[in-house]
């Protein structure tokens, strides 16, 4: 199974460990990822919040290249997945818009390729049985809260990964990997990552509320598929804890990192050393590394 790989800017920088673990896990599960040649930034929130056309044109360039490759797109980053999907849906719905975008990017675009988050690739193209069959170190005894955030699940119609109020697909994958998932209320509450640099105070409030709920339900760590959520929940955790006069110590990991451990990948290759809240003591305690 071959897919066009769109890592996106974050995975080449702050979310480097997501990139590494994605590539390793994909290899292990027989997913062939071919990087989209000379891919460019999807525009993130900045493009579509300041120009509707730019917000479609930037992702469209990458979709057009993938179309030339004749491959569906795998996009691990929640924001990239969201933006590529949104551009695709908007051009599907509006023929005139598609024509204009084709003119802007000076490439043909027919809307032939699908955009999938990596979790969806694992779930529907690899299958949970295959995941279970490849387990080496099941994540037994590790209680985790799957956190989906906004971009993966909202709004319906723009993205169609999972239910917007109670998504379960990450839970399913991690459960297949042997993990113990906590059922909790704040799976999709916004963590305010887009305000991280500009409205830090607000952001800390939102992060605090989410971590508080996860801790209350007994989670020992959080798994996510969004670089912004990961960074935000990880880096703002200390501030949030101070504000709430508590100490969370909840490592925030990419689901691919833990899946990698379960699949028997060497811990040293999964970027476990790159988090603010170090997950290694917990994983050692559980005998997973």
């Amino acid at each position: 199974m071959k897919l066009a790989y769109y890592p996106g800017c974050s995975l080449c920088g702050t979310a480097r460990e997501y990139n590494i673990s994605t590539i390793k896990v994909s290899e292990k599960l027989g997913i062939e990822l071919e990087e989209i040649p000379d891919w460019s930034c999807c525009g993130a929130t900045s493009a579509h919040t300041s120009s509707p056309l730019l917000g479609v044109a930037l992702p469209a360039r990458n979709l057009a290249i993938a179309e030339e490759m004749g491959l569906d797109v795998a996009a691990p980053c929640a924001a990239c997945y969201h933006n590529l999907s949104a551009a695709r849906v908007k051009m599907d719905r509006d023929h005139l818009l598609r024509k204009r975008i084709e003119e802007i990017i000076d490439r043909k675009y027919r809307g032939k390729v699908k955009v999938l988050p990596l979790a969806e690739v694992i779930l529907s193209r690899v299958g949970l049985d295959a995941v279970r069959d490849s387990l080496v170190h099941p994540l037994a005894g590790l209680k985790m809260a799957a956190y989906y955030g906004c971009l993966m699940v909202r709004p319906k119609g723009i993205v169609d990964f999972d239910d917007p109020e109670n998504p379960t697909k990450l839970d399913q994958i991690m459960e297949a990997a042997g993990g113990e998932m906590v059922d909790w209320s704040h799976k999709t509450e916004c963590c305010g990552a887009s305000l991280s640099l500009t409205g830090t105070e607000l952001c800390v409030d939102l992060v605090g509320r989410i971590l508080e709920r996860a801790a209350e339900e007994g989670a020992e760590c959080i798994v996510t598929a969004c670089p912004f959520c990961q960074a935000n929940l990880d880096m703002r955790q200390a501030e949030a804890a101070t504000k709430l006069k508590t100490d969370f110590r909840l490592p925030v990991l990419y689901f691919t990192q833990l899946l990698g451990i379960a699949l028997g990948l060497p811990a040293g290759e999964l970027g476990l050393d790159s988090h603010v809240v170090d997950p290694r003591p917990l994983l050692r305690e559980k005998g997973l590394i």
């Binding site: 800017c9 080449c12 920088g13 460019s40 525009g43 993130a44 900045s46 500009t198």
Partner: peptide, 17 residues
Amino acid sequence: LTDLFLGSVRRSGRIFE
């Protein structure tokens, strides 16, 4: 931030965090 971001993408094609 938006201006910086879009400027960065315009110059490099990707984001320079």
